[in-house]
């Protein structure tokens, strides 16, 4: 379970998070929406331990993330996958090498097993044909899919998705949404998805929260949120909002 309570964070002169409370029960997918710059990605970075809150608590499975030392954080992160907005692929590694990186670093799998696992995940995100290409030779959408493959290759318990469909065409976006649903269904992955996309939120989410002014302005089940009269819910989830 991911649990943030009354988290405050100031970056420079801006109060990005101002008493954010957020609960993501195990095995569910929580979709976090909100205006640009409202602190969605900052929230993800608190959960993975890259940022520490000024006040409040951030817990994963009751473990206090900000209080962890380097080794404890590394252990926690091995149980998590993270999809970055731009994929954040290592430039000098090929697509396959990028996906293989966490396995090569942490698993005891042999070279052939790693290769098989990597190709399996690349097939799922439809990137197997580009396995030997470098990131500079592939499109933004392909980078994102490779990043997704890298986040999933270690079969993590938690996956944090930062704009999983940014820059993707509608067909590929739909496939990514289905993939997020699939990993939750088959692997029991707990997910936190940051997105602006109504389709992504309604297809992938069990619960949707909308961030505004550094805290959750409104949250609820998908059906409740899509029928809500709250202005933010209507702006992000109303008909034609995609």
């Amino acid at each position: 379970m991911i649990e943030l309570r009354l988290v405050k964070k100031r970056l420079g002169t801006r109060q990005v998070l101002d008493g954010l409370t957020l609960l993501v029960p195990k095995g569910t997918t929580y979709v976090l929406m909100g205006p640009s710059g409202s602190g969605k990605s900052v929230t993800l970075r608190h959960i993975i331990g890259i940022l520490k809150p000024d006040s409040g608590s951030v817990k994963v499975d009751s473990l206090d993330v900000p209080a962890m030392n380097r080794e404890q954080l590394m252990t926690l992160r091995k149980r998590m996958g993270y999809l970055f907005q731009n994929g954040a692929l290592i430039n000098w590694l090929t697509v396959a090498e990028n996906v293989a990186l966490p396995l090569r670093e942490h698993s005891r799998l042999g070279r052939r097993e790693v290769q098989e696992r990597v190709m399996e995940v690349l097939r799922v995100v439809r990137m197997d044909h580009a396995a030997d290409l470098h990131p500079s030779r592939i499109s933004g959408g392909m980078k994102l899919r490779t990043g997704l493959a890298r986040a999933l290759v270690t079969q993590p318990e938690y996956v944090l998705y930062d704009e999983p469909n940014a820059g993707l065409d509608p067909v590929m976006s739909h496939q990514i949404h289905e993939l997020i649903c699939e990993v939750r269904g088959t692997l029991g992955v707990t997910g936190l998805v940051v997105t602006h996309s109504r389709a992504c939120a309604t297809i992938c989410g069990d619960q949707i929260g909308i961030l505004d002014g550094g805290r959750i302005a409104i949250e609820g089940k998908v059906a409740e949120m899509t029928h809500s009269d709250h202005p933010l819910a209507r702006a992000f989830l109303g008909a034609g909002s995609d």
Binding site: M80, N86, I90, H106
Partner: peptide
């Protein structure tokens, strides 16, 4: 520096790669 500003360093840290 380019890796840093394009989140690649953060990606390494998130993968527990020092």
């Amino acid at each position: 520096g380019t890796m840093k500003v394009s989140d690649e360093i953060t990606a390494l840290e998130v993968m527990s790669v020092d």
